[in-house]
Design a protein around this nucleic acid. Structure first.
Lengths: 136, 136
DNA sequence: ATGGAGCTTCCCATCATTGGAAGGTCAAGG
DNA sequence: CCTTGACCTTCCAATGATGGGAAGCTCCAT
């Protein structure tokens, strides 16, 4: 099948399929006489794998490693799990950061009247005219 | 003061100060005869404002708006609060996305033995050989 | 006057993805 | 047979926020 159909079947855009090939995440696709790329079921399978990994927030580098582990029949599930746990830790760190931002901002917003007057603890906090809320 | 000192005082790197000037987030700094940028207390104050807004996760576009509101003595706190609430919603959306990733991956990792054998529900889920965990 | 610290501009890299231009290929229909 | 339109090709550029570094200028202390 050609790239459009492979994109449809895998959920990865044609644009990204070419990109993944360019950066060596996937092997170069076969070519027809027309120079069009040609994909088989295995290729689509690998692309869908990548798609699901992206949906879980794995980086390209991590996906490279996941693909290597997937292909290695002698892999240990320990290695896969370690990679997953490392990624979970990254996710939790990001969630914590965003959660702190949310909490700080929610507190400020809660203290803001939200009326037609200019006085606003949000702006004042950003301006540093009041000590920033420091809850943890 | 010159840019290094302003960077130190505001918590914004000299690199970023120049960048913010280039994209019009801050007005062009005055220059000395040496062509060095020259900053006063007001400039540092504005940079610190930007720094705190960045720390709360506001985008450059949002900060542009916040700076406009800060400068506007006739602003309504309603407008500031609306911007803050909108940003809180963005943060919560991101947190929710990351949280779903974390939950899915944690479930898979929990089901993975993590031993020396290759069998691994994480890899299998990515490969699509088992239906993906669909909890919401 | 020389060294070094700090400044200047300019270009490039990151990360994953998207957009578009210019042009080649193929099938269907007039 | 020729056109049209959908598909493909490569290449270049942009996104957002930041960092790295080169080449060259300014300033101050030794």
């Amino acid at each position: 099948m050609q790239i459009g159909e492979a994109a449809e079947a895998s959920g990865v855009t044609a644009k990204m399929i070419r990109h993944y090939e360019a950066i060596g995440l996937i092997p170069p696709a076969g070519r027809r006489s027309s120079n069009y790329r040609d994909y088989g079921a295995d290729d689509v399978h690998r692309l869908a794998f990548i798609r699901r990994a992206r949906d879980l927030g794995f980086s390209i580098g991590e996906i490279r490693e996941l693909l290597r582990l997937w292909a290695d029949r002698r892999r240990s599930s320990r290695d896969v799990k370690a990679l997953a746990l490392r990624h979970i830790a990254e996710l939790e760190a990001k969630i914590a950061t965003l959660g702190e931002m949310r909490a700080t901002l929610a507190h400020l917003a809660h203290c803001c009247d939200g009326d037609s007057r200019p006085d606003c603890p949000i702006i004042e906090s950003l301006a540093g005219t009041v000590p920033p809320p420091h809850r943890h």
